[in-house]
Simulated assay, not measured.
Amino acid sequence: MLPEPSGLPDPLPEPAVEDLRLETVLSALSDPLRLRIVRKLLLDSEEFDHTCGWFGLDRPKSSLTHHFRALREAGITRQRQYGLERRSQVRVADLNSRFPGLLDLVAEWNPAEGDHAG
């Protein structure tokens, strides 16, 4: 996990670590597109956080906004507002402390060839 740079904007509202609930996290991850987003952040992240465009998803902006909000509200990702864009990162330390091994499973997940969610 990359260190947090100084001078970041405050995160958008998210659940506190002690309020993270397994059923909420699993529900958010049950969508194949959201699972792909989290997996890509875990495996391919080269910066601290990423804009929606970095993911290369061919979806309407309103659809992506919905998916990224669902991940943030479940406590899986943290989002920060930079002017007109929001950037995301996985809450690795928080999720590992609450649900050890869960992110390892997400990282090891291999999408089925017939899965066209992304």
Rank of each mutant, 00 (worst) to 15 (best):
S45T: 00
L8A: 07
L43D: 06
L29R: 03
Y82W: 15
L42W: 00
S97F: 13
G56T: 05
I37K: 00
I37P: 03
V106P: 12
H67W: 05
S45P: 04
S30V: 01
H116Q: 14
R80C: 04
P111A: 03
H67G: 01
A28D: 04
D10Q: 12
R72W: 10
V17D: 09
D115C: 04
L71W: 02
E47D: 13
P111M: 03
M1G: 13
D58Q: 08
E23G: 04
L102S: 01
T77E: 06
V25H: 07
T77H: 07
L43K: 07
S27Q: 11
P15G: 06
S62A: 12
R69P: 00
D58A: 03
S27T: 10
T51A: 15
L12V: 10
R59C: 05
H116W: 13
D10E: 15
L41M: 08
L12C: 09
F55E: 03
N96I: 06
S45R: 05
Q89T: 15
D94H: 14
T51L: 00
L71T: 06
T65K: 09
F99L: 10
L20S: 00
T24F: 03
L29W: 06
G101W: 07
E4M: 12
T51C: 06
L42G: 00
D49M: 09
T24C: 09
H50W: 01
M1A: 12
I76H: 01
H50A: 09
L84S: 15
L33V: 08
P11Y: 10
S27D: 15
R91V: 01
G56F: 01
R34W: 05
E47F: 05
L84M: 10
Q81T: 06
I76W: 05
V25Q: 05
D31Q: 11
L12E: 10
S62H: 15
E14Q: 15
G7N: 15
W54G: 03
S62F: 13
C52L: 07
P100C: 03
F68D: 02
V17G: 07
L57S: 05
R39K: 08
L26N: 09
S27K: 11
L35H: 02
T51I: 01
S6W: 11
S88G: 06
L26E: 14
L42P: 01
E4R: 13
R59G: 01
G83V: 14
D58Y: 11
R69T: 14
P32N: 00
L57Y: 06
V25P: 10
A16Q: 15
